[in-house]
Design a protein around this nucleic acid. Sequence first.
DNA 1: GTAGGGTTAG
Length: 466
Amino acid sequence: MAGGSILGGLLSNKTRYTDVKALTRQILTHLKANRLKEAVSILFASPDCFSYSLYAHLFQLCSSNLDIIEARKVESQLFGACPTPPTFLSNRAIEAFGKCGCLPDANELFDEMPLRDGGSWNAMIKACLQCESSEKALSFFQGMHKEGVCANEVTFASALGACGDVLELCLSRQLHGLVVKYGFRGNVILESSLVDVYGKCETMSESRRIFDEIESPNNVTWNIIVRRYLEMGNKNEAVIMFFKMFRAEVRPLSYTFSNALVACSDMRAVKVGMQIHGVAIKIKFDEEEVVLGSLIDMYVKCGNIESARRVFDLPGSRDLISWTSMVSAYAMSGRLREARELFDEMSERNVISWNALLAGYTRFLQWKEASEFVYLMGRTAENINRITFQLMLNVCGGLSDVDTGRQIHGSIYRHGLSSNIVIGNALLDMYVKCGNLRSAAVWLRQMKQSRGAARPMNSSGIIVSE
DNA sequence: GTAGGGTTAG
């Protein structure tokens, strides 16, 4: 266009070049100060291509800030200024889109790439994982295999992660074979991923066998094995592995404390929990928020509220999670006034904190307080969830308020939760407690029908050929 | 200018 050429004529190539240099310096200053938006707006001051490393940095910051808007802007300036950017930059963009949870953006870019390398496939597989599309991740893994692109350690780590999400034991075993075949044994990350995926697929004996073969498990490996025992219901072994980690002189992750303490809670083993508390003090983990929060919850679940409170009153232990544990402790032990006081003092709350107090009101049949609280919740709390609906139905049952119960029933439909079995039972219970047996019978029939219709789908069944 | 594993509260 004429306007464009006039404007273009005003700028000689030389001034343009120095412009880019000066602009780059400005952008870098903003990037260092985490001012992404400002950095990106300066990017658009020039129609020219900046250095590739600058774009890489920009995408990286978009990823860590989870800022999809800026990521899209960077991509658009990049492709406007330089029609065929190097593959690695497109890979960075895919990673940023994935990290921001925008799989369609990632997929579109991937499809349009004239040239892909292994990193492109890895980025795409990872993007699927981050967007909770593990089935898709596995089909990309399969596609990569079909196109003859060689999988590397990174590919296998992601693919195993996807298998863990969809509980694909069969594919996991095949991947395990490939990991060995490609000579990746001894890679502690991949071996840890194998421990993880076998544990998730409920084959703890295989998980443990791999674990025992690892030459030097690191803190993540230990965290995985403790966690998997915990989730498989073997609390005792979870705790045993926790103490074993210390004999191996591996410095734990704070979440490993959490997992071991949850195991103690489940076993009501407060004495073991106290030993773990002692360990935390000894290795100076007793100032970490996550560990303190987990200690509080352990004491709460073991019924030792005063010990929990002592930890809660320590400096640095009060965050949303520990605060919610404490509210729950008072609420579920019937100390509703104290629960309410603590709740009112909270500087931030989420749906879990709200539910914690509501659960106390319903457990102790405080229907009046409960319904007032529900009203307040409807006006103040941002999101309510499945648990909230369940508790609200209990309140309706307690008050014999079938009209509100029906409204909640409608709301449950709109939230797509009506096929949930726990919610279904809560609805049934509500209708019965309200004395409305006809509605109860109608709902029961519907539940039976929808359960017949909604059979669980089998997972992908993807097979990798050797 | 490159890639990867773990997550406590209702």
